[in-house]
């Protein structure tokens, strides 16, 4: 298995952190190095953390309803910072109706309540595979590829 450096971030004012912590632990137990940002980070801070930590993947967690603004904003800033090869995924309370716009912004996977950990891990395995054979999957790599 490839050890990844993954940032798990809580953008905005949302104070629900249980889900993010559950996911962070699951990723750790799968052998990854997980940097947990803690609550209330701005999109700018999150991008700086991804950059400083040399993370190749960032997972965003939101339960407050602000995902529609915050997730695309993180994607946009990653691209502006030249971090278009970073993979963005996320979870929390994200209604189906909001998902196409997030996919459009470059979010490659969205996982709601009750998602089994294995699903998230198999998403990451697919990312690693795609990278190994040069298929696009980063936020700025202009691809239709996505999982859920």
């Amino acid at each position: 298995m490839t050890r990844l450096r993954i940032v798990v971030a809580k953008p905005g004012l949302d104070g629900h952190d249980r889900g993010a912590k559950v996911v962070a632990r699951a990723l750790r137990d799968a052998g990854h190095e997980v940097i947990y940002t803690g609550l209330r980070r701005t999109p700018e801070e999150i991008v700086r953390i991804v950059e400083d930590e040399d993370a190749s993947i960032v997972g965003l967690s939101s339960l407050s309803g602000a995902h529609a603004f915050l997730f695309p904003r993180v994607c946009e800033l990653l691209n502006e910072a030249g971090l278009g090869d970073v993979v963005v995924f996320g979870g929390g309370i994200i209604p189906q109706a909001d998902r196409p716009a997030l996919h459009e912004a470059g979010v490659r996977g969205i996982f709601g309540p009750g998602t089994p950990t294995d699903e998230v891990l198999s998403f990451l395995e697919e990312v690693v595979e795609r990278r190994a054979n040069g298929s696009p999957c980063g936020v700025g790599e202009g691809s239709d590829w996505r999982r859920s």
């Binding site: 050890r3 137990d29 052998g31």
Partner: peptide, 19 residues
């Protein structure tokens, strides 16, 4: 597992905001 949960940043609010 070889994995790690790196959580110190969680407490670093001031330096997180200082670029």
């Amino acid at each position: 597992s070889g994995g790690s949960l790196l959580g110190d940043r969680m407490r670093m609010e001031e330096s997180g905001a200082d670029e």
